[in-house]
Amino acid sequence: MNLIPLNHILIFSLALFGIGIYGILTRRNIIGILISIELVLNAANINLIAFSKTTSLSPETGLVFVLFVIAIAAITVAVGLAIVLALYRSRKTIFADEVHLLKW
């Protein structure tokens, strides 16, 4: 069986990560930002699986990490969406650039 070379997978995950980061930094919509965060996390997941398949002595290690990451991502989204909901209720907006309470 011919495996996809590691480098390709890494380049793919790098691309995914880059798209995710780009989304985080450019999206005004907080939900968009949350989705982009998911992309970043999934890029990391791909990396973990790729390394566990190719270089790890015990491939299960990477899978366990991935499961944790997915769980945490779910929690993140849950908390994030809750924040967005609360924000919307109080501020009537879900645009990140309209919420700059931390400004000087």
Partner: peptide, 8 residues
């Protein structure tokens, strides 16, 4: 000036 308040 760094402290823009914008999360991004």
């Amino acid at each position: 000036r760094l402290q823009t308040g914008f999360v991004q």
